[in-house]
């Protein structure tokens, strides 16, 4: 199988400080990869660098486009970067308020990416927005409500709908369930799991929660101090951790 994203020796430094260092991996179509590690381990830096939101200090990222042509992300123009972000990628932020447009209605939030792709049929936009609200378990009757009137969990689900409505091929997710109640988390995780399967998405998800990795990801990378210390099958990493840091991480999980 052909990879969708190829990351090679990727580093991102902030002056003298290391954000992430020497990261290499392949992501295949339809695959969800989790990056776990504690706060400050470089997970989000890595994610933002991969998503071309930060410029890498060294290394390369290649992305295979819809037309099968490989794209070198460091040679990407701003126009191409935006086209990718609009047409082929999605980004889900930890705080839904960063990913949503709070001053327009839920329906407009969902429809925005479609309009950016040139859809100009209001009736059709409404229809798609409604069906996506239902898909993320938001009552379609709330289509004209402002996202500010939604709970945190609903806002996150709205952000997911807004991101996935254009059926991107690759989605980057930065702790999409952090800061939510456990019951709300479970709902979002189940939803993500279902949508990722249904749409055949490839995704890279940053999380500090090992249970999230176990539930969603076939493969996991463990980061510490900006470096990947262990990588492999998620169940392998959680059930037979090799690196001291991974062992510490796994043994620190509370079990109920």
């Amino acid at each position: 199988m052909n990879a969708l994203l190829q990351v090679r020796k990727l580093s991102r430094h902030y002056g003298q400080r290391i954000g992430c260092q020497d990261v290499s991996f392949d992501l295949h179509p339809g695959e969800l990869l989790c990056i776990v590690g504690e706060s400050g381990s470089g997970k989000s830096t890595l994610l933002n660098t991969m998503a071309a939101q930060l410029a890498p200090s060294a290394g390369s990222i290649r992305y295979r486009q819809k037309n099968d042509a490989w794209l070198e992300l460091d040679a990407l123009s701003e126009a191409d970067r935006r086209r990718l972000a609009r047409e082929e990628w999605g980004f889900v932020t930890q705080n839904p308020r960063d990913g949503l447009r709070l001053n327009v209605s839920a329906g407009a939030n969902v429809a925005e990416r479609l309009m950016a792709l040139g859809m100009r049929d209001y009736g059709r936009l409404r229809e798609i927005a409604s069906s996506w609200l239902a898909r993320v378990e938001i009552d379609p009757l709330r289509i004209d409500d402002a996202p500010t009137s939604f709970s945190g969990g609903m806002q996150q689900r709205l952000q997911i709908a807004r991101t996935l409505v254009t059926q991107p091929r690759l989605v980057f997710m930065d702790e999409p369930t952090a800061g939510l109640d456990v019951s709300v988390q479970a709902r979002i995780l189940d939803l993500l799991r279902r949508l990722v399967n249904e749409l055949g998405l490839a995704a890279v998800m940053v999380t500090h929660d090992l249970a999230v990795a176990r539930l969603l990801a076939a493969r996991t990378m463990v980061m510490q101090g900006g470096c990947v210390v262990e990588t492999g099958l998620t169940d392998q990493i959680l059930d037979d951790p090799q690196h001291p840091y991974t062992q510490l991480l796994v043994s620190s999980v509370l079990t109920t």
Binding site: L233, D235, Q236, Q242
Partner: peptide, 9 residues
């Protein structure tokens, strides 16, 4: 069994 399944390395 777990080693065979590659659950353990």
């Amino acid at each position: 069994l777990r080693v065979i399944y590659a659950n353990y390395r």
